Simulated assay, not measured.
Amino acid sequence: MRFHNLLYTLYRLNNRGVFKISGIDNSAFLQGLITNDVNLLSNNSKGVLPAFVLNSQGRVLYDILIYSIPKENQLEFYIECDLSQLVNLKSYILKFKMRKKIDILDETLNVLGYIPKICQESNIQKLKIDYLNYATSVVKKCDSISDIITTQFDPRSLKLGLRMIIKAELDIAKLLNNISKPFDKDFEMLPISQYTSYRYRLGIGEGSIDHPVGQCLPLESNADYLNSVSFTKGCYIGQELTSRTYHTGVIRKRLMPIVLEDNSLSDINQPTIPQGIDMYNQNGKKCGVFRNRIGKYGLGLLKIQESLDKKLHIKFDNREITMTTHKPEWWPANDI
C-alpha cells in the first residue's frame, strides 16, 4: 500500500492554545508540577509528552501536551492546553515560580491535527510499520519548513495521527503543498467538530469539558493508559493520591466512549444534553455521569463493570435517551 496516496484530513484545532516556558530551570520546574516525567524528553531532539496538572488533592486541573525544542544546548518547552484555560494555567504555574530562572512567553501559534485515513481503520496495527514510515516522512518534510515549530506523533494514541504547532501567519495551503503533492487529490480540511467526534469515538478526553476542572482524577481520566503519568519520577503536586490509587486501589470508574442509539440525535449539538447528568444502566442503577457529545458519539465517566455490555440511558426534559459503551481498543488487553 502506498501511504502517500492515502486521503488524509487536517484540522485546525482552534480550541487549543500554546505558550512557551524557557530558562535554565524550566525542566526542573515542570517536573514538580506535572504527572509525567520531563526527563523523558531528550536534551538533544524534539519530542512531545502528555501530562496532567493536578491540585493538591490529586484532582485534574488541566491536561496538557509539552513539546520540547532544542535551542542553544537547552530545551524550550511549548505547552499546549485548552484555550479557555490558557490564562488560568499560566497563572497557576506562576504561583510556583519563586526564584526559579524561567520565563513564560506568549506566542501567536496555531495547533493542527494531521490524521491519515489509515488511522481510522481497525487494522492499523497490521500496518503499523508502514504507517510509521509514512508519518515519519511527513515529520521530516515539516522540519524543513521554518514556520512550523514542531510536528510530532500524538503520544496518547497512534490513531490520533500527528500534531503540528505552526506560526499563525503560515499559509496552510502552501504548507500542505510542501508536504504532499498534489495535495488536492488526497487532502480534505474538516471542521474541528469532526475531529472531536472522532476523538470521542476513540474514547479519548481532552480539555476542560471532558476533564472538568478540579472534579476528576487522572487515572479515571485514563492517564495511565494514555502515557500521561509516571509512577517512578518522584514527587509532584497531587502525586500522593495518584500513586496510592495506582499501587493499592482499584480503578472502578473510567472515562469511556458512548454511542447514542437514537438517530434523531445525530445533529452536532441538538438537543443539548446537560453535562454531569446521571447515567443509568438497564437495571436502573446509577453507573456514571455524562460528559459531552458531538452527534451520536460522546464520553461518560462510567463504572466499568456496571456499564459494559448493558444498555445505558439518561433522562431529562421528559425524554429518555439510550446509549451503549464499549472498551476502547487501546485499553490494555487484560483490563476489565
Rank of each mutant, 00 (worst) to 15 (best):
R254S: 07
Q125S: 15
M189P: 01
I69V: 14
S91G: 14
Y114Q: 10
L260K: 01
S307R: 01
Y11M: 12
K90L: 08
I179D: 01
V289N: 14
R293K: 15
L109C: 09
D278E: 15
L61T: 01
L202A: 10
S122I: 08
K303Y: 05
A135G: 05
D224E: 14
K97M: 08
R99Y: 03
K126V: 02
G113W: 01
I204W: 00
I148Y: 00
Q74G: 02
D210Y: 00
W331K: 07
G58Y: 01
R199L: 13
C235S: 09
N110E: 12
K181P: 13
S243H: 04
S193F: 06
K167N: 14
G249D: 08
E261D: 12
A168R: 07
K311E: 12
C216T: 14
Y195F: 15
I145N: 04
V48A: 13
T245H: 03
A333C: 05
L30M: 12
R291M: 14
L260C: 09
F3D: 04
I24L: 11
I66H: 00
I64C: 09
F183H: 14
Q31G: 07
L162N: 04
Y246E: 12
S68K: 05
L255E: 01
G234N: 04
E72T: 03
L241F: 03
P212C: 08
R252W: 00
S84T: 08
Q270L: 13
E329P: 04
G249H: 03
S22H: 02
S42A: 12
L89C: 09
N44Q: 11
G300I: 03
L112F: 09
N26Q: 07
I66M: 07
D106A: 10
L83D: 08
V60P: 03
I64Y: 00
Y246I: 02
A173P: 00
H4V: 12
L312V: 04
E107W: 00
S307D: 07
L41H: 01
Q74S: 13
A51C: 11
V139F: 03
S122V: 10
L49S: 06
K311N: 15
E240P: 10
D210E: 12
G295K: 03
D335N: 11
D147Q: 14
I258T: 01
S208Y: 02
H211I: 10
R99P: 06
F183R: 08
Y134E: 09
L132K: 11
F52P: 06
Y67D: 09
N334P: 06
G205T: 03
I66N: 02
L89A: 05
K167V: 03
K90E: 09
Q275V: 10
D63R: 04
I336H: 02
Q120W: 00
G32Y: 00
C216E: 10
Q270F: 13
I321D: 02
F77H: 10
N283C: 10
K46I: 07
R2K: 14
R12C: 11
E72G: 02
S193V: 11
K253E: 07
S56N: 10
D25W: 01
K174Q: 12
S264A: 14
N26M: 05
P328W: 01
T150E: 08
L13A: 12
